[in-house]
């Protein structure tokens, strides 16, 4: 298509939108709604993933509490056994004395509460760091059979729950979005159909004088692209602005500690812009192509 065709399409496309401004508004609103849902889901999933990734380091630990009646030799033997297991990176022994000191430090001002114990209530323990969180079950099943272990604590359940939640949010989000995208296509389809109806004579004349389908389609595709584009711009601005506010709120109210779990604002900007424009404009094009299909057959 030449420059002439493009200017023609632009002019006629804008005229079409103006002629059916209410439907155009509905189209833009539906594209915006679909993309906003997508944006919320994307940000949720990205952040939950990020929490998972950030905390994976902490979660690849297994803490083993030892029975109190064990001798030093027995405890050492257990330690040796553990370090020989597959998937174990390091094993650290912590005496109950060390554990109590750490606890006192953690409790700080309330540490005096711990003074009341005549005997140290904490067990001696081993902290096992795994090479990967996936080895948790294998290692735990071996640990169970080792004599002298009182309690085994690990975090795989939490991580699995987290992953499950992510997947659920993602699935629900994707379904919602697909439904909304379909609704958007349908609304754009109907909007442009109104223009097509208004231009039926024009289209038939264009065909008789030998206009190519591309030339006839041009204005309607432009109309669809504009509707999708406006919807994308609105939703991009809304999502980015909202996320910026939330991000700053978290930063102020929960201190920087929490923000390490949040995906930084600048990281998502690019993805959101590209994905939103692609979907928004794509929806517009699909809607307009569909609405013209019947009229181009002759």
């Amino acid at each position: 298509m030449n420059v002439r065709g493009i200017t023609h399409s632009l002019k006629e496309g804008l005229t079409g939108i103006w002629r059916n401004r209410i439907m155009a508004l509905a189209s833009v609103a539906s594209v915006t709604a679909a993309l906003l849902i997508l944006g919320v889901v994307m940000i949720l999933v990205l952040n939950i993933n990020n929490i998972g990734m950030t905390s994976k380091e902490q979660f690849r630990e297994i803490v083993v509490d030892l029975r109190k009646d064990l001798s030093m030799d027995q405890m050492e033997e257990i330690g040796d056994n553990i370090s020989e297991l597959e998937g174990v990176e390091t094993v650290n022994f912590q005496t109950n004395e060390q554990a109590l000191t750490i606890m006192k430090m953690d409790w700080a001002d309330e540490a005096y509460l711990l003074e009341g114990f005549s005997e140290n209530p904490l067990p001696n323990s081993y902290t096992i760091v795994l090479t990967d969180i996936e080895h948790t079950e294998k290692v735990v099943s071996k640990l169970i059979s080792i004599e002298g272990i009182d309690d085994i604590r690990y975090y795989k359940d939490i991580v699995e729950k987290l992953i499950k939640i992510t997947i659920t949010i993602r699935n629900v989000g994707v379904i919602l979005m697909v439904v909304l995208v379909l609704i958007s296509i349908f609304i754009i389809f109907n909007t442009i159909k109104l223009t097509v109806f208004a231009r039926q004579t024009e289209i038939s004349i264009m065909k008789y004088v030998g206009a190519t389908n591309g030339f006839i389609r041009g204005p309607f595709i432009v109309e669809g692209i504009i509707l999708g584009f406006v919807g994308s711009v609105i939703s991009i601005l809304a999502i980015l602005y909202a996320y910026k506010i939330v991000y700053q709120k978290v930063l102020e109210d929960f201190y920087a500690f929490f923000t390490m779990y949040l995906v930084p604002y600048y990281v998502i900007v690019n993805d959101i812009v590209i994905i939103f424009f692609t979907i928004g404009i794509g929806v517009g094009i699909v809607g307009s192509v569909l609405s013209l299909k019947r009229f181009l057959r002759v």
Binding site: S204, I205, K207, Y208, V209, G210, A211, T212
Partner: peptide
């Protein structure tokens, strides 16, 4: 379309 450019059409209702 290119075939139709070789033809001109006139209708009863002008169009």
């Amino acid at each position: 379309p290119f075939l139709r450019r070789e033809m001109g059409v006139v209708f009863q209702d002008f169009r």
